[in-house]
Design a protein around this nucleic acid. Structure first.
Ligand SMILES: [Zn+2]
Ligand SMILES: [Zn+2]
Ligand SMILES: [Zn+2]
Ligand SMILES: [Zn+2]
Lengths: 169, 169
DNA sequence: GCTAGAAATGCGACAAAGTCGCAATTAGGC
DNA sequence: GCCTAATTGCGACTTTGTCGCATTTCTAGC
């Protein structure tokens, strides 16, 4: 995995541009991100760090993570219900939205050009300048909707990308 | 305002259908909702109740609000960043999405048929059965985007409905 | 109207998530 | 290597949300 070092580079560039320092803890944070799943919270980062025998204080991570977001390395999402703050890697991967299954808890990452276009149109109509957006659709995934119309489980995604993420902590 | 009593009726019907009771506290909750702004948290409800000289315990409200959601009287939203749980009235008003201004904090409620249609299409492609969804677009409202392209402040919404909500607690 | 049983409430203790000020440490330019 | 400002760890604190239990309050049946 060389993803980590590339990310550190990204972080360093960002920090430089802001007159901030590339510290042990900040490097550690991006490494911890690599060790986490698709969606994670700040406490997960702390756990990942400790698993490597490195210690960081919660408060420090709470200060660091917003920087990673600003640097474009992380993205804040509310993929699941939205209780705890959740993040995901935001570097390199294009923007995507989430389909959250209420039964199996899986989170399916999707993206749709048509959708983005429609959002842009909506903003334009309101004279609104969009910076980012988040769409979460809750419902039942193909595997789980068997209650209701059974036999639908084998759908294939069309030309959209779809990443199924392990869900349910 | 007779909205309240209509809402109580809605609640009563729901509770009946579930063998639950229409209690003092539950009525109080829907009244507190009326007294709250467009978006509010459970603690706001408690405050609203206390302002009327009525006391409810936090725990009770935490138990009551999910019922109001199930009854269709409230909707859980993450209109602002998403730290505390937020709710809004969900009765009578059609579904809408939120444009959140990063500068003035206003939350603009919008709805777009084209958008909903696109979402339906997206779900269909993934064999996903949608139950509900939430879209939040962050950026700068017409009044605030003056940084950048000044002079845009007087945009008129097109044929979309738009409700501007007081924002910024 | 009275009573038994179920449901709802208040209470308080708790857990998790997040924030803050401050003293000790460290990165990085010189 | 030194100096200074930035960063960290710490711990105390707030906010948000949950839980079990004793008490109160509905409701249905008598
Ligand atoms: Zn599922
Ligand atoms: Zn995702
Ligand atoms: Zn604004
Ligand atoms: Zn709203």
């Amino acid at each position: 995995m060389k993803g980590s070092s590339a990310t550190v580079g990204q972080l360093e560039r960002f920090l430089r541009s802001r007159g901030l320092r590339l510290t042990r803890c900040r490097k550690l944070a991006v490494e911890a991100v690599e060790a986490c799943g698709a969606h994670f919270g700040i406490e997960d980062l702390k756990a990942a760090a400790r698993a490597k025998g490195l210690r960081v204080h919660r408060a420090t991570l709470y200060r660091t993570v917003p920087l990673l977001v600003e640097a474009g390395i992380l993205r804040k999402v509310s993929a699941s219900g939205g209780d705890r703050g959740e993040y995901e890697k935001g570097l390199g991967r294009g923007h995507h939205d989430h389909l959250l299954c209420l039964r199996c808890g899986r989170s399916i990452e999707v993206s749709s050009v048509a959708m983005e276009r429609e959002q842009a149109r909506l903003c334009a109509r309101h004279g609104f300048l969009a910076v980012d957006h988040q769409l979460r659709i809750r419902g039942y995934c193909a595997d789980c909707r068997s209650d209701g119309q059974p036999g639908d489980a084998a759908r294939r995604p069309g030309r959209e990308s779809a990443v199924i993420v392990a869900g349910r902590r």
